[in-house]
Amino acid sequence: MEEILVQSSTNTYKISIGESLRLQIKQFLNKEYSSIMLVTDDHVAALYLNEILENLPNDQVFQSIVPAGEKSKNLQAFYQLQTEAIEFGLDRESLIIALGGGVVGDLAGFVAATYMRGIDYIQMPTTILAHDSSVGGKVAINHELGKNLIGSFYPPEAVIYDVETLHSLSDREIRSGYAELIKEALISNENFFNTLLMVDIYNVPNGGLQAHLQQGIKIKATIVEADERESGVRKYLNLGHTLGHALEAELGYGKLTHGEAVAIGLLFAIHVSEELYSIKLPFNELVQWFTKNKYPINVTDLDKLALINKMKSDKKALKSRIQMVLLEAVAKPVTKELEDTAIENYLISFERRLMEND
């Protein structure tokens, strides 16, 4: 088992990565809780819920199951979970456990952050993508006008990452997770990026997957410790997310997975970087890797004005000006404010470039 410590402004929490950790959950509870509310989705519940319940020490354990998918990360699901927490009798000494992917983690974490002004929660990620979202204490729900616009910074008490739960992932979920690993490599570690370019993501042995996750989590943890509330270097973790979030909101949540949208956003960020700074970055190499690993990157006929409006409503925008994370080189990220007309032109040339690579 690998352990990584993260120091936040309010607490130090441990990220534990290994096999069969879901069966050892008692050892990760640092104190006694008056009650426990376990939040998961209907897909994960069918696979792991009973195992978790059998290994919880508390008699007062409740469960809440939401529909799987990004569409559950909304105000209605948030309100329903708050209602259930009240009906279950949770108090300020209660614990919420988020068992699932990024949707469950963000949703349950935001419930924990706001229930009675904040109670403890633990992240138990079950997807590759959630290696990123479960670390750093950003919790949120979506608004139809933009992704993650309603949320908070609220660190967990622990992150328990049982890699055995990754065996049941679909190809789409594997793609989604590896896009975030590629992002982390692009902003901080060229060797890691080159290593990932050699990977067939659907045939990674357990040891290799765990090594990739540890590397990605260490990158994320280092950045989060340096800038917990995203006033500086933490913004670099948004590489690929300006267009990625806009695509998710414009196409409808669930049409693309988060990671699939980010993959397109990464290519766009690299394209803009090359054009703006007159440099050569691994655009073609990344297109080939995404294509080999079956990412749906050939988006065409984009509504560019609609996407620009979505980008301007993104939480990373400043005074309605689009702020993008770009690259001066691999592992050398920068932030740049761009005018609408520039973004529109870049979208046109980006779409043309993708068609030429098809």
Rank of each mutant, 00 (worst) to 15 (best):
E2N: 15
I4A: 04
I4M: 02
L5S: 15
Q7M: 04
S8M: 14
T12Q: 14
T12V: 10
I15P: 01
S16R: 12
I17T: 08
G18V: 10
R22C: 12
R22D: 06
L23A: 13
Q24L: 13
I25L: 14
K26L: 12
K26W: 01
L29H: 10
N30Y: 08
N30R: 14
K31F: 00
K31N: 02
E32T: 13
S35I: 08
S35Q: 07
M37E: 02
M37W: 01
L38S: 10
D42H: 15
H43K: 14
A45R: 04
L49I: 00
N50K: 12
E54S: 14
L56Y: 12
Q60E: 10
Q60W: 00
Q63T: 15
Q63H: 10
S64N: 13
K71M: 11
Q80V: 02
L81Y: 09
E84A: 04
L90S: 09
R92S: 09
S94W: 01
I96Y: 05
G100I: 13
G101D: 11
G102A: 09
V103R: 04
L107V: 10
A108L: 11
T114N: 11
Y115L: 09
I119E: 08
I119P: 07
I119C: 02
I122R: 02
S134M: 07
V135L: 01
G136N: 04
K138I: 02
V139N: 12
E144D: 11
N148G: 06
L149E: 05
I150P: 04
S152R: 07
P155H: 04
P156K: 05
E157Y: 00
A158L: 05
I160H: 00
E164Q: 13
G177M: 09
Y178E: 03
E184S: 14
A185D: 10
A185L: 12
I187R: 04
S188C: 03
S188P: 00
N189D: 15
N191D: 14
T195N: 12
I201C: 06
I201V: 14
Y202Q: 09
N203W: 03
N203H: 14
N206T: 07
G208Y: 02
Q215N: 12
T222E: 15
T222N: 15
I223T: 10
N238T: 05
H241C: 08
H241S: 09
L243E: 06
H245E: 09
H245L: 06
E250M: 01
G259N: 07
G259D: 08
I270F: 05
H271M: 05
V272Y: 11
E275H: 07
K280H: 07
P282S: 00
P282Y: 06
E285K: 14
W289C: 05
F290R: 00
N298V: 09
D301E: 13
L302D: 03
K304L: 14
K304E: 15
N309R: 14
M311R: 07
S313G: 03
K316N: 13
L318N: 12
I322K: 03
Q323P: 00
V325T: 15
A331H: 05
P333H: 01
P333M: 02
V334T: 15
E337T: 10
E337V: 08
L338W: 10
T341A: 13
I343W: 06
N345I: 05
I348W: 05
E351F: 08
E356G: 07
E356Q: 15
